[in-house]
Computed example of a mutant assay.
Amino acid sequence: MKGNQIIQTAAIFGMLAVGIGAFGAHGLKEILAETGRAETFETAVKYHFYHSLAIFIIGILALVKPNWKKLSTATILMVVGIFIFSGSLYILSLTGITWLGAITPLGGVAFISGWILVFLAASNKNEQ
């Protein structure tokens, strides 16, 4: 992925985070109260938004440092993390299907792996 594509990806995920967060706070308030999962939904939105911002910053880095090839893979891992981590928590919050909580940590591993790749991209002397 090129820097501009990464920034566009971040914009889409940021837009979705704001929309889902607003919808959760207003349109889903009663459902989240019934399931007792408003806090879980809020956690999903937070991680979704934080990692949308991280993807945006990675996109800027990719424009400035196009040789940092690991940034593309870091972006993919963060997108996967948003889908698995936040997505499973969104569904859990709305449906109460508790087994989804078992796959949530896989999204966390994707987030962590993405951050590790950002670190490695910045520390690899061959890519400087």
Rank of each mutant, 00 (worst) to 15 (best):
K29G: 04
L63V: 11
F56T: 04
L71R: 11
L28E: 00
G19L: 10
I58E: 02
E39K: 14
I60S: 06
G59N: 08
K29N: 09
E34N: 12
H26N: 11
I58Q: 02
E42Y: 12
S72F: 10
E39G: 07
F56M: 12
I31H: 00
I60C: 09
G36Y: 07
R37V: 00
E39A: 14
R37L: 07
E30W: 00
I60Q: 08
T35R: 09
L16Y: 06
A33Q: 14
A44M: 11
E30A: 11
A22T: 10
T40A: 13
W68Y: 15
V64S: 09
E39N: 12
W68G: 03
L71T: 05
V45P: 06
A25E: 02
T43Q: 14
E30H: 08
A54Q: 06
L28W: 06
E39I: 11
L16E: 03
M15W: 02
E42D: 15
H51P: 02
G14H: 05
A38T: 09
E34F: 08
A22N: 05
A62V: 05
R37Y: 08
A25L: 04
F49W: 11
H48W: 04
L53C: 10
A44N: 08
R37A: 10
A44V: 01
T35E: 02
Y47I: 07
V45H: 06
E39M: 10
S72H: 14
I55L: 12
G27V: 04
K70I: 11
V64A: 12
H51S: 00
S72E: 15
F23L: 07
A54W: 02
I58V: 12
E30N: 10
H51V: 03
G24C: 06
T43H: 13
S72Q: 15
L61M: 14
F49Y: 13
A54M: 11
I31N: 05
L61Q: 07
A22H: 06
F41G: 00
K69H: 14
V45E: 03
A17F: 05
T73F: 15
A17C: 05
G24M: 03
V64R: 12
I57K: 02
T35I: 08
K29S: 10
A54H: 04
S72T: 15
A62P: 09
E39F: 04
K69S: 15
M15G: 12
E34P: 01
R37I: 00
L61E: 06
N67K: 15
T35V: 07
W68Q: 01
A44H: 03
T40G: 02
L61R: 05
I55A: 10
F41P: 04
L16P: 01
H48T: 08
F23A: 06
F23W: 08
A38R: 11
